[in-house]
Simulated assay, not measured.
Amino acid sequence: MPAASPSPATTPATATTPTAPAQARTTSPANRLKGGLGGRFGPVALVVAAGISVQFGAALAVMIMPRAGAAGVVTLRLAAAALVLLAVCRPKVRGYSRADWGTVVAFGVAMAGMNGLFYQSIDRIPLGPAVTLEVLGPLALSVLVSRRLVNLLWAGLALGGVVLLSGHGGGGLGFGSLDPLGAAFAVGAGAMWAAYIVFSARTGRRFPQADGLALAMAVAAVISLPLGVAQAGSALLVPSTLALGLGVAVLSSVLPYTLELLALRRLPAPTFAILMSLEPAIAATAGFLVLHQAMSLLDALAIALVIAASMGAVRAQRG
């Protein structure tokens, strides 16, 4: 499951033309090499690091689910992330219209639904397959928005990957032996991820900086609180559980938000989306290293098909 993607910061164009010495400095071979490496690979590294943080945070969440349950972990994550974002952003609450608040509430509902369904999913099925099914939501959104015939090819490729995952029989932790309810939760989380993307963009247009994100996170935390308390009760107040929940919040929310915000200042949105398509592979790696969730070659091939379909759909978009 991805972190929230803040709206990219806009960089105003400079109003003056650099002098000749300045032009010479900026166009020297050394500066071109340094700028090329930093400009091309720096933001990419930030996005990949954010994805690693998110998925290893999800792996940590699986480890503490026996203590607090899936709903309890969601509550800990969203509440901790909301407190951090509200403290850092200090968003204003006055001067907004009813439509503005409606948008941020819808964003919070989508965020709560995406997190809640995803954590219910990884409580039942391996992390890699769960993220693979979840990413179908943004992929479907990309196909619908693009309205290009070639994206039907990418949709078919993704469908082939899912059929391969669910149909080869598997074994152990293979995809063929998935809990049907866990798979359904993952697909539902993907649908909420698509809604999350839509309302994230709308919120970014109505609220400055990350104010809308902080407010939406608070809404999501309030929504998840009753469910978390009902499932975990006083276990949420155990110091060790609180500390681990804070770790999940930092790895899955606070750190990725920061890295993605820095990356989006220098990285085109389509490139960012393509890099986000690597989430299933990162999730499978985290599941293997942290949770010892092995996968077969057919599972890996199926995940690769879904990743390729996501990348192709994003690259086929225009505008």
Results as ranks from 00 to 15, higher is better:
143 V>D: 00
149 L>P: 00
86 L>A: 03
142 S>R: 10
23 Q>T: 09
38 G>S: 15
138 P>T: 00
110 A>H: 00
249 A>V: 05
225 L>V: 14
305 L>V: 04
10 T>D: 13
109 V>N: 04
278 L>C: 10
223 I>Y: 10
34 K>L: 15
300 A>V: 14
227 L>I: 03
49 A>G: 13
144 L>K: 02
43 P>K: 05
293 Q>A: 12
251 L>V: 07
112 A>C: 09
107 F>V: 06
236 L>V: 00
261 L>H: 12
281 A>M: 10
243 A>H: 08
16 T>D: 12
129 P>K: 04
222 V>P: 06
18 P>H: 03
167 G>H: 04
16 T>P: 00
133 L>C: 02
59 A>I: 04
106 A>R: 05
124 R>K: 14
238 V>Y: 01
285 T>N: 01
154 W>N: 04
132 T>Q: 03
260 E>M: 13
277 S>R: 11
10 T>G: 13
176 G>H: 06
71 A>T: 02
63 M>R: 15
75 T>M: 14
70 A>N: 04
270 P>H: 01
28 S>Q: 10
117 L>G: 10
150 V>R: 13
178 L>D: 04
170 G>D: 11
54 V>Y: 08
10 T>N: 08
285 T>V: 14
38 G>W: 11
163 V>W: 08
178 L>H: 06
204 G>I: 02
273 A>K: 10
98 R>Q: 12
283 A>N: 08
272 F>H: 11
99 A>V: 10
57 G>V: 08
212 G>V: 02
313 A>C: 10
245 G>D: 02
216 A>S: 13
153 L>A: 14
235 A>Q: 11
125 I>R: 12
54 V>S: 08
250 V>Y: 04
290 V>G: 08
173 L>N: 14
4 A>P: 02
27 T>C: 00
284 A>K: 09
209 Q>E: 15
211 D>A: 11
277 S>Q: 14
148 R>A: 12
83 L>H: 03
274 I>V: 15
272 F>Q: 06
130 A>L: 07
18 P>E: 10
286 A>Y: 03
19 T>N: 06
22 A>G: 07
220 A>S: 12
160 G>L: 05
278 L>T: 09
73 V>M: 12
98 R>P: 03
86 L>Y: 06
36 G>H: 09
305 L>T: 05
259 L>R: 04
32 R>H: 09
102 G>L: 11
117 L>P: 10
140 A>T: 13
89 C>W: 15
66 P>V: 02
20 A>M: 11
182 G>H: 09
248 V>S: 02
214 A>I: 05
200 S>L: 12
246 L>M: 13
122 I>E: 03
157 L>H: 01
80 A>K: 00
201 A>W: 01
137 G>S: 05
33 L>A: 14
118 F>E: 01
298 L>G: 08
40 R>C: 11
19 T>F: 00
195 A>P: 03
170 G>A: 12
250 V>D: 03
139 L>V: 04
309 A>P: 01
84 V>Q: 08
18 P>I: 03
60 L>K: 01
172 G>N: 06
86 L>V: 10
58 A>D: 15
247 G>W: 01
217 M>Y: 09
261 L>K: 11
11 T>N: 03
55 Q>G: 04
112 A>S: 07
220 A>M: 08
300 A>I: 10
67 R>K: 15
137 G>H: 11
198 V>I: 15
121 S>T: 07
313 A>F: 06
149 L>Q: 12
296 S>H: 09
90 R>V: 00
175 F>Q: 13
77 R>W: 07
232 A>S: 14
157 L>Q: 02
261 L>I: 00
